[in-house]
């Protein structure tokens, strides 16, 4: 299976890079943007075909390394590879 892990900053955590993107979009004429938040997308190819097992495995990866739970949230999407 393939896991797509999205790591984003928690609400309330300042995102200076998101702010800079927001400003840049504004200066390009893209109006009507309330907020921009940026994060990371991590693709993991797993040799596990059981969805529940794959999910549990990736969750552990997130908690241990991929996300810093002080400032970040994560979400996991699985798809057949």
């Amino acid at each position: 299976m393939k896991a797509l892990v999205k790591v984003t900053l928690k609400n309330g955590v300042l995102d200076p890079q998101g702010k800079a993107i927001h400003q840049a979009l504004g200066s390009l004429g893209f109006d009507g943007i309330d907020q921009v938040r940026q994060g990371k997308l991590i693709e993991i190819d797993l040799n596990e075909n059981d969805e529940a097992k794959a999910h549990a495995q990736v969750e552990k990866m997130c908690e241990k390394l991929l996300a810093n739970m002080v400032i970040e949230n994560y979400s996991i999407e699985l798809e057949a590879s």
Binding site: V13, L14, P16, Q17, A20, N68, V70, I71
Partner: peptide
């Protein structure tokens, strides 16, 4: 130690 370090506010 508690907390975390973010990108500098002025990038």
């Amino acid at each position: 130690l508690p907390g975390a370090m973010l990108r500098n506010a002025n990038l």
